[in-house]
Simulated scan of single mutants.
Amino acid sequence: MTVATPAQASIWEPAHAAGLPAYVYDLVGLDAHAAAVREALGDVELYYAVKANPDPELLRALAPHVDGFEVSSGGELAHVRGLFPGVAVALGGPGKTDGELFADVTRLHIESPTELRRLLAPGRPADVLLRVNLDVPIDGASLAMGGGATPFGMDPQGIAECVRLLEKQDVVRLRGVHAHLASGLDAPRLLELAAVVLDYARGLGATEINLGGGMAVSYADPEALFDWRSYGEGLARLRRPGEVLRIEPGRALTVYCGRYVTRVIDVKRVHGELFAVVAGGTHHLRTPATKGHDQPLAGRGRVAGEPVTIVGQLCTPKDVLARDVPVRLEVGDVIEFAMAGAYAWNISHHDFLMHPKPAFHYIREAV
């Protein structure tokens, strides 16, 4: 399977350092990766979770390989519809506004009995999946969205209440079940959860099951890729005739195609520890600060050196991109952070201190 990895050579020309910081998206690599995922999944439906990265060029690269897009707000819906007017769209997320609840979408993920009652009141047609939160152990997840008391989805009692409400009318159509219980799981663990969800859905008579996303991505070991082949084969074994299975990955599709490229402004030692201050920072790339990891550096040929902590320009000690990186850095050096294609720019606090925003560049041809 083809993906971009930090071992690959630099994608930025040093002569262009004046245009930094910048995000660089490898659309060629993304196209190859998405095609490989699509092939590995067989006839499992593939929706892209737009929340991971809504960049229009990334969405255009993904569109030929996906069956639709999953959105979590009216803003994301308008964004996708503006790019692809007729594409299939599933809308989910808690706390839907009336505009979102009554939007024209392919599938609506219902989060609560109250939400369903609001939908039923005006008697408008809709096709819905009920989002279930099963009380099951979720080991090894980086983020738990279910498996116990969380604000997401419904327990079986809530699902039963929704089923009773739907049985009393025929305008809002129950199409099946949606479950996104956790993020950061490998293929065997996701298949274990899929088996539990499928067993529950079959008990309701559901034949359309959205198993969510949550495929593991390792920032500590970027070469450790999710096993899409075994996941697709496992889902094929679990699926029964007549069932429609759908997944909605986000990070695992786009994270490898993006890099955050910047330059070193200052190198200094404070109480014995070495710091490199770069242009930009976590107001551009918030992921390492929120998840508590080091953003991996990309590019070959770097000279080993004393461990250095790479920080940004913000007036907060949390503005750290990577700690104790064993590489020699000097003022003016251009550095590239890999795995910046998901939950990076779009979740960052852009206007804190009002620094300039990064540029965006796209690789459209193989190099």
Score class of each variant (00 low, 15 high):
D199G: 08
D199E: 14
R202T: 11
R202N: 10
G203K: 04
A206W: 07
E208W: 07
E208C: 07
I209S: 03
L211H: 02
G214F: 05
M215F: 14
P222M: 09
D227M: 04
Y231W: 07
G232F: 02
G234F: 00
L235N: 12
L238H: 01
R239W: 12
R240K: 14
P241C: 02
V244P: 01
L245A: 10
I247T: 06
E248H: 03
E248Y: 06
P249R: 10
G250E: 06
R259N: 11
R259E: 13
V261K: 11
R263F: 10
D266E: 15
K268Y: 04
K268F: 06
R269E: 15
R269P: 00
V270E: 14
E273N: 05
L274R: 14
F275Q: 04
G280T: 07
G281A: 02
T282V: 13
H283M: 05
T287K: 08
P288H: 05
T290A: 14
K291H: 11
K291M: 09
K291R: 15
G292Y: 12
H293I: 15
P296S: 03
P296A: 01
L297C: 03
A298Q: 13
G301Y: 02
R302W: 14
R302A: 04
A304P: 00
A304Y: 04
A304M: 07
G305I: 00
G305V: 05
E306G: 02
V308F: 01
V308Y: 06
I310H: 04
G312H: 03
G312S: 01
L314Q: 08
